[in-house]
Structures are given as structure tokens and as C-alpha cells.
Design a protein around this nucleic acid. Structure first.
Length: 434
RNA sequence: CGGGGCGUAGCUCAGCCUGGUAGAGCGCUAGCUUUGGGAGCUAGAUGCCGGAGGUUCGAAUCCUCUCGCCCCGACCA
């Protein structure tokens, strides 16, 4: 993409409403604009990142055996009355009345909808298990939205739902999602650790939240050092028994502040790490909480109806955009992990109008392709270009100017480390294409 | 939902206390000079001073109401 044509209204100064670093950088880097409290417009650069993250989530869900679908944002209140949540949910639910005076709502989650789809479609235990998911906008009318995109009222979430014959088999579905989450966050360049979470009225130990470590995170977490060093599971056979793998990850001490056991933690000694984090995922098994009141049953092996056991698994897709920035930035701006970067490389033409420089840039641009490179072909001063490029944080910068070209080199800069190297355009190209 | 703060140019903000012709820096437009880390000079354009009501000869400024946004606390992907 040529920057001269791209919609990238970066800001030199920080808008007053932004307090935390990710929010500030997202506004300055022209990723989002605030529309109302907790509601954002995604500009091209921010949208590109959102799509990258969404795609990683999708790939890992599919790999784990979940199937993508799409449920509506506007839902009927009737279903929510069936589950009993229409009244329970309170003011966080945005309620709408349509022209026929029917009660509708903007979905804050989709247990009711998916349970309804399931019960009208699945009759036999032979059709189990199933994991279905969608990536859809949600609305929760938070009392106090804040932290930009990390705690908005409108947010993009991946929510998956599992259906099993009983709790024992449901555990396998749970484990599949557990492992999928480990992989999902790792692929985004994040250190995410699973913490045992409150399970509510259902009880049991089947709820975990996934916390991304970032100094500016909302919650304090305590965990065993070894958790931070554990390698991401590769080549997972999702049909195999995943329990040993899950046990490996849950066997080590890890707790958020509210679940923190000081005595137990102290016994870890030097292995105890206390850090801050941002919740980016939450999985739980809730049994028949919705299937029972809504009558989601299948015919079991013995011919009797069985109320299915369910679980739900959420990833805050839009929140991740902010969380990644919180975890990866410096004074100059964002530092995108390669996997989620909106472009792989930023090409800086230091002297637009200079024949040799223009030609060298054009050939690099053509070779790398418009999807991988953002080419700053604007007639701006070098300093402005450097500042903008650092701000938007593409992993690589290739800086091309007449001085370097006279020596037969371009400058290649690694955004994360700041390392610069003078190499020929050909070798830069080779490196970036690899 | 309790407590606090702020709405003035695209952005950051001054002016308000003590009422009297709407301001600065950055950005934008044009020209000249510049050009390897957010240039300099010159000339411009830009505002229902968040909205409504009131007090006053006169309101950005004082009063009342209202809308919006932010921050701190209790709750959440």
C-alpha cells in the first residue's frame, strides 16, 4: 500500500481522553477513533490488525475441531426469558423494542441462541460432541467503559459453545479449547497463562481465564516461574487424550489476586512470579445451566432423553488489539509481533522526486507486494516519516535514500530491537521475502 | 451506581476568578528557502466558546437546567 493513498491520519499529540498507553497509541497511530463512550470506529490500520487476530483465532478454533457459524447481534427477548436471564442480566443488557413492540436485545453473549439452534436440530447422542463458534460483535452496557478498546461496550468476541452427552466427555471439549487457547495467544506473540477462575454456582474446577502479561494490566497475577517458560504445544492431536497436557499447565501454581493463596504461593520461594496481566480469554464448563431450562436434550444410548452438558469459551478479539500493544510498545510507538502486524515492512523513501531513490523504492515495492509493504511515498521530511513509521510499529523498516544508494545500500531496521543494517537492496529483499 | 473533573479552531490548550470586538502552538492552504529523526520565513483559511434558558446595556466568562466525555472506587471478553 502506498502511504500517499492510505487513510492514515496519525496524530502528533495525544487526544486528552486517552489515559493508557494502548489507547493513546491506537488513537495516535490512526487505528481507531472514538465514536461514543466505549464504542469505536476502526480505521484501516486498526481493522487490518483486528482481522489478523481474528484469523489466528479462527485457524486455531478450526484446528481444534470447532466449526464456525454466525449468530445475530440482535436477539429476541423470548429466548432470554426461557433461560431466566432476561431479568437477571440487568442494565448491562441493551434492550430494544422493535416497531411491533416486540422486546429485542443486542446480544451480550449467545448461549441462548446457540442452545435454541442446538435443541431444534440435534436429536441423538450419536451427533455429539459438537463445538460451534462465531466471531461476532457484542454489546454490554458497562457502567464505566474505559481503557479504550480493552474495555469497550461494543467489542468483538469469539465465543464457542460445546455440547456433550455428560460431564466426563464435556471435559474433553473443554481440554480441546484449553489447548487451542494456549496456541492462539502464543501465535500472537503473547505470554498468556491460564489461571483457575471462579466457577460460580456450578462448581468444579472447570473454569480458567487466560491472562496476558503486561505491566499495565488490570489484574495482579501470581504464578510459578516455570509457567512462563513452557513451550507452546505443537502438533497436537486434538482427538487424543489431552488431559496430561492440560494437567501439565494447570499443575503449576497460578492465581489471580482474588484466588491467591498466600501460604501456598510462599512455598514456591524464588519460583514465585508476581506480575500484572490482562484477561483475554475465559473458558468454562457450566453443565446444564442453559440446556435444562431450555430443554436441550438428546436421546441417549438407552433411549431416554439426556440433557446435554455445555461449555462456553470466549476470546476478546478486539481487546487483544489493545492487550498486544500494552505488552509490546516503547516510547516511540507500537511494536507489532510479526503475526499480527498490519504490514510486514515499512518502506521509507527519503527523497521523493529523486529519480534513483524513486526507482529503487518502486522496485522493492513491486517485489514485496502491496499487501506486505506500506510504502511511504509521501513528500514529507525524513523525520516525519521515521516518526510515523516507528509509531505504527511495523516489524521491519527499509530506508532508502540517495546517500545510501550512492554506496549501493539501503538501511534495514528492526523495529523491536532498533538494530540497523546497511545492506544491498537485493539482500534486503531476500531477507524480507524469506 | 457513588465520588471528582473537563467541554473554546482538526489536535494540545490559554482566556473564565474580576462580564466589554475570539487567542497561542501544532496541523491545514499558497509561495520561497530547506531536506538522513516530527524544518524556517511570509501570507492565508478555520470557531452556533457542547446545548437550552436566565441575569445584564452587554455573557466563552455569572446563575439554573441539560447533553457529552474523562478519571477514582464497587463489577466485567
Amino acid at each position: 500500500m502506498r502511504l500517499s493513498r492510505y487513510f492514515l491520519p496519525t496524530l502528533k499529540e495525544t487526544p486528552a481522553e486517552a489515559q493508557i498507553v494502548s489507547h493513546r497509541l491506537m488513537l495516535r497511530a490512526a487505528m481507531v477513533r472514538q465514536h461514543a463512550a466505549g464504542i469505536y470506529t476502526w480505521l484501516p490500520l486498526g481493522f487490518a490488525v483486528l482481522k489478523k487476530i481474528e484469523q489466528i483465532v479462527r485457524e486455531e478454533q478450526n484446528r481444534a475441531g470447532a466449526q464456525e457459524m454466525l449468530m445475530p447481534t440482535i436477539q429476541s427477548a423470548e429466548l432470554w426469558r426461557e433461560s431466566g436471564r432476561y431479568d437477571d442480566y440487568g442494565k448491562e443488557m441493551l434492550r430494544i423494542t422493535d416497531r411491533h413492540e416486540r422486546d429485542m436485545l443486542y446480544g451480550p453473549t449467545a448461549e441462548e441462541v446457540i442452545t435454541d439452534v442446538f435443541r431444534t436440530s440435534i436429536r441423538s447422542y450419536k451427533d455429539l460432541p459438537k463445538i460451534l463458534y462465531h466471531i461476532q460483535w457484542k454489546f454490554r452496557d458497562e457502567v464505566r467503559p474505559r481503557f479504550g478498546v480493552m474495555r469497550g461496550r461494543e467489542f468483538l468476541m469469539k465465543d464457542a459453545y460445546s455440547f456433550d452427552l455428560d460431564t466426563a466427555t464435556a471435559r474433553h471439549s473443554y481440554n480441546q479449547m484449553f489447548v487451542a487457547y494456549l496456541r492462539t495467544f502464543a501465535r500472537m506473540g503473547l505470554k498468556a497463562i491460564p489461571l483457575r477462575a471462579e466457577t460460580g454456582p456450578i462448581g468444579g474446577d472447570l473454569s480458567h481465564e487466560f491472562i496476558v502479561l503486561a505491566d499495565t494490566g488490570e489484574s495482579e497475577v501470581h504464578c510459578h516461574r516455570a509457567l512462563l517458560e513452557k513451550p507452546t504445544p505443537e502438533g497436537v492431536d486434538y482427538d487424543a487424550d489431552l488431559q496430561p497436557l492440560v494437567d501439565e499447565w494447570t499443575g503449576l501454581y497460578a492465581a489471580a489476586d482474588e484466588m491467591h493463596d498466600v501460604t501456598k504461593a510462599a512455598s514456591l520461594g524464588d519460583d514465585l512470579v508476581t506480575a500484572r496481566g490482562i484477561e483475554v480469554g475465559h473458558i468454562f464448563h457450566f453443565g446444564t445451566k442453559y440446556s435444562a431450562p431450555m430443554g436441550a436434550t438428546v436421546t441417549g444410548p438407552d433411549g431416554d432423553p439426556v440433557t446435554v452438558a455445555m461449555g462456553s469459551y470466549g476470546v476478546g478479539v478486539s481487546r487483544l488489539v489493545g492487550a498486544i500493544i500494552e505488552a509490546s510498545h516503547d516510547d516511540a510507538g507500537i511494536i507489532w509481533p510479526e503475526a499480527v502486524a498490519p504490514f510486514h515492512v515499512g518502506l521509507i523513501n527519503l527523497k521523493v522526486g529523486d529519480e534513483g531513490t524513486d526507482a529503487a523504492c518502486a522496485s522493492l515495492y513491486d517485489a514485496l507486494g502491496p499487501d506486505r509493504v506500506l510504502y511511504d511515498d509521501r513528500d514529507e521530511r525524513a523525520g516525519a516519516k521515521f516518526a510515523d513509521m516507528d509509531l505504527i510499529g511495523l516489524p521491519w523498516q527499509v530506508i532508502v535514500g540517495p546517500k545510501g544508494l550512492a554506496k549501493g545500500v539501503v538501511e534495514m531496521k528492526n523495529r523491536a530491537t532498533g538494530e540497523r543494517e546497511e545492506i544491498s537492496a537485493e539482500s534486503a529483499l531476500a531477507r524480507l521475502s524469506g
